[in-house]
Design a protein around this nucleic acid. Structure first.
Length: 584
RNA sequence: GGUCCAGUAGCUCAGCUGGAUAGAGCAACAGACUUCUAAUCUGUAGGUCCCAGGUUCGAAUCCUGGCUGGAUCACCA
């Protein structure tokens, strides 16, 4: 059993016996003792003053005496103000390490029978992915891994916004100015090529609009609208061009996804789902969930949940965004019978998702009680917002290439790496991506973040490479190990150093951290945990000798600690979608 | 105007259901490589936790009011 749980249970018993007062284990505050004080775990006793009718110091003493006599793992205590600092016997820690070492896939929670869909990325097909998408994609990937680790079955999906006026804009510009250019003929990645014509469209549109009255739309805009009409009428030539250009974009997206190491279990296309949902509206109209205005438009009243009236069907009977989302959710339920769903979407859509979830509740969909919007803040650059029109967008592919290049250069300056050219390339890729991903994931999702490209390739301090380096040092030690080590006596090892205990204390928290990160939909908690572990480990490695330890028992204990730390760091980084290099 | 989110060191961020003297990293300065990889470690300096009230033994954290920045409230997606 985890020691904090044991302490909690015994404190409950103590309070009951001493003061005839019942407390709940979960309400107790037991936390690792702050490093400036002596002890391993601290109990805050202030909350008992009322029930005990005594001062905190007396209560701490009585509970401390109770615990030391009743719990063999507790060997002593000290009291500072209302804080009871407990000492845990060293044997507990060595036994705990031994258990951890032999446990397979530590941190994985038992299956809870729940199935969850995580939707993320969901790009438009008219331009390449940029930094904002990257935050989305990394958050989506990490949270689906974390949710799965917490015991849920997870289905990862994206909905591709492959139809609409935006893609028609790229299409018309390509038709007018492209001269039949393809990714093959000019060697450009497909999404970038299509994006180029989207930019071209905007340029022409601006030029043409400049000489027209305010209200009047440009020639090229009218042409794009014409194209959308043709698409909706299933015009063969238009559909053909649409398929071709989207195909280019998908090839490009897939390459970026592959570079980022992310996958999807199922992909939905808006062109196939945008008509869904109407029948649900009609049915909901019949049983009074929705109401119809005189012009024929259909609405829902969400004032009871402090939202507005929301349109769900236009007066001409066509669907809106909300209609589609209702339909898509329902379709997913038909496909997978999920218990809940998580949408990874920027916080500018908070209102939309609140409304969507309320509507699904009113429709009494079986999954409606477990919907979550993983809402994340905008990614800003040091000098302000990203704006495509001003050319200040950070392209995902460029960024990936850049960080890997930086790492390569830095690595070369640090001296020759003992590895083949191929291995080196792989190391630089892992470290570069590690830096970038960690940089984006360490920030709490709901906070808007400032992305400084220079800082994203930092290799020192609270960064991905710092954590990877801890893993690399462990591998180095294991490589140097040239004799058999007898791990049998680790269970009884007594001479535990504070640095070692600190690492162990953190390792013990791993399953709990996973649970919390899953509950909060917050990968940054994993990121910070990894840093804490790596930091404690670097300190341990600096202060304590492993291979040249004084006794064989100490050596075995420390090696076991190294291996276990390495496994947990690798496991936790995998949750963030970050690989570990063997050397760097 | 309504709603939501954010505001903590020069910068980027932590701070769990309210708990000890508010913590890290970067940048600055000063140290530690003949040693398991110094992509590391140690130290110095840096704070009106946006402001004002309130609740509490105790508030960065909870409540109320305000300030600043952002988003949103479309028969757009």
């Amino acid at each position: 059993m985890e020691i904090t749980q044991l302490i909690r249970e015994q404190v409950v018993k103590a309070v009951d016996q001493l003061y005839s007062h019942t407390v709940d284990t979960s309400s107790l505050l037991v936390s690792p003792t702050r490093k400036e004080f002596e002890g391993d775990y601290t109990l805050v006793v202030f909350p008992f003053t009322k029930a005990a009718k005594k001062g905190p110091a007396d209560i701490a003493k009585e509970i401390g005496d109770f615990l030391t006599s009743e719990v063999k793992e507790i060997t002593g205590y000290n009291i500072i103000k209302g804080f009871l600092n407990l000492n845990v016997v060293n044997a507990y820690w060595s036994k705990y390490l031994n258990d951890l070492y032999h446990q397979e896939d530590f941190g994985q929670h038992a299956p809870n029978g729940r199935k969850v869909i995580v939707e993320y990325s969901s790009p438009n097909t008219n331009k390449p992915l940029h930094l904002g998408h990257m935050r989305n994609i990394l958050l989506g990937w990490a949270s689906s891994k974390i949710i799965a680790k917490a015991g849920n079955e997870v289905i990862k999906t994206q909905i591709i916004n492959d139809r609409g006026i935006h893609i028609c804009k790229s299409m018309i510009a390509w038709q007018l100015y492209g001269n039949g250019e393809t990714p093959e003929t000019n060697g450009t990645k497909g999404d970038h090529l299509v994006g180029k014509y989207y930019v071209e469209f905007n340029k022409k549109d601006k030029e043409q609009s400049a000489i027209l009255p305010k209200e009047q739309e440009s020639e090229i805009m009218l042409q794009a609208r014409e194209l959308l009409k043709k698409w909706e009428a299933n015009d063969p030539a238009t559909i053909e061009m649409w398929k071709t250009m989207n195909g280019w974009v998908y090839a490009g997206f897939n390459q970026t996804y592959e570079n980022l190491g992310v996958t999807f279990d199922v992909v939905y296309y808006e062109s196939e789902t945008y008509l869904l949902g109407k029948d649900i509206i009609i049915k909901g109209l019949e049983n009074g969930v929705f109401y119809q205005k005189e012009d024929g438009s259909v609405w829902i009243d969400l004032e009871d949940v402090k939202l507005d009236h929301k349109l769900v069907l236009r007066s001409d009977g066509t669907s809106v965004y909300m209609t589609q989302d209702i339909g898509t959710a329902k379709k997913r339920y038909e496909d997978y019978q999920m218990d809940g769903m998580t949408y990874v979407v920027g916080d500018e859509q908070n209102y939309h998702f609140k409304a969507l979830f309320e509507i699904l509740k009113k429709l009494k969909e079986p999954f409606a009680e477990n919907l979550h919007h993983l809402s994340y803040g905008m990614v800003n650059l040091p000098h302000g917002k990203m704006k495509s029109r001003e050319g200040t967008v950070v392209d995902a592919d460029d960024l990936i290439k850049e960080v890997i290049g930086e790492v390569e250069q830095e690595s070369k300056e640090r001296g020759e790496l003992d590895a083949s050219e191929e291995e080196k390339q792989d190391i630089w890729r892992i470290v570069g991506l590690g830096a970038l991903k960690y940089h984006l994931l360490k920030v709490n999702p709901k906070k808007p973040m400032v992305f400084d490209p220079k800082e994203s390739v930092d290799l020192q301090g609270q960064t991905g490479p710092y954590i990877q380096y801890a893993y690399v040092r462990i591998q180095g030690i294991l490589r140097k190990l040239d004799e058999e080590v007898n791990f049998e006596h680790v269970v009884n090892y007594q001479e535990i150093e504070p640095q070692e205990k600190h690492v162990l204390l953190l390792l013990q928290q791993y399953p709990g951290i996973i649970q919390r990160a899953a509950n909060n939909f917050d990968p940054s908690e994993i990121a910070h945990y990894c840093y804490d572990v790596a930091s404690a480990f670097h300190k341990f490695l600096h202060d304590v000798q492993v291979l040249t330890a004084n006794t064989s028992e100490a050596k075995a204990f420390r090696l076991m600690l190294c291996k276990t730390t390495g496994n947990i760091l690798k496991s936790a980084f995998a949750l963030l979608g970050i690989e570990m290099p063997k050397r760097m």
